[in-house]
């Protein structure tokens, strides 16, 4: 009888120890899951926003280079090898029947985001729509502005452990084009306008 009681006592203790370990495991696991979960959520939030910002910065810088080139600076060595005044004039003449796939190098955006572990590729620029008709207006008149759509795309890669993937940011922008009356030397004045606000953004 005494042995039976001792066994019961030992069994009760064993059950208590097991319950204690179980509760500790559940509590510890819950705290660990909570801590890693909140940290991971925060990391994903920041990395996702960084990714978007890097894409936005690269495409915005590309637009600045395109504007400068189309405004008369021509090709920008190391940044933009094409003269976008010529490219856009050609696109409006032909109606941009196929993608041109020209490239702009967003050097400043690349440098800005490299410290945060995001690698920015080259920006590919296509004139996806351009309403044709480059004929000069009659003397003394100004033609209505014509419009087209540029598509800019950039691929981003992150070396941050929580990012761990690449993304492609695509954005479209209106482009307006106007032909003014011939100048004194008989040359037409061309104006290209790239508004600052995009039509929309897609992240793939």
């Amino acid at each position: 009888m005494i042995m039976c009681t001792e066994r019961r006592g030992a069994g009760a203790l064993l059950v208590m120890v097991l319950v204690l370990l179980g509760v500790l495991a559940v509590a510890g696991g819950a705290a660990s899951v909570q801590r890693s979960g909140t940290g991971r959520t925060y990391g994903r939030l920041v990395d996702g926003r960084l990714l978007l910002d890097a894409g936005d910065a690269a495409l915005t810088e590309a637009i600045a280079h395109l504007r400068r080139s189309a405004d008369g600076a021509g090709a920008l060595p190391g940044v933009c090898e094409d003269d976008w005044r010529v490219v856009l004039a050609g696109a409006f003449l032909t109606g941009a029947p196929r993608a041109t796939g020209r490239v702009v190098h967003p050097l400043r955006a690349r440098a800005s985001f490299a410290a945060q572990g995001i690698a920015i590729g080259d920006v590919r620029v296509d004139v996806v729509v351009a309403y044709p008709g480059l004929a000069a207006p009659p003397s003394g008149q100004v033609a209505l502005p014509r419009q087209g759509v540029l598509e800019l795309a950039v691929r981003l890669e992150g070396d941050r452990p929580l990012l761990g993937r690449s993304a492609r940011v695509v954005r479209q922008r209106w482009i307006f084009y106007a032909t003014e009356a011939p100048g004194a030397k008989g040359r037409h004045l061309l104006t290209f306008v790239l508004p600052p606000h995009p039509l929309g953004t897609v992240i793939e």
Partner: peptide, 14 residues
């Protein structure tokens, strides 16, 4: 620290 960067395009260049 948390750092965010935004590139701002000027509205008027012409």
């Amino acid at each position: 620290r948390v750092v965010y960067t935004r590139f701002l395009l000027h509205d008027h260049v012409h």
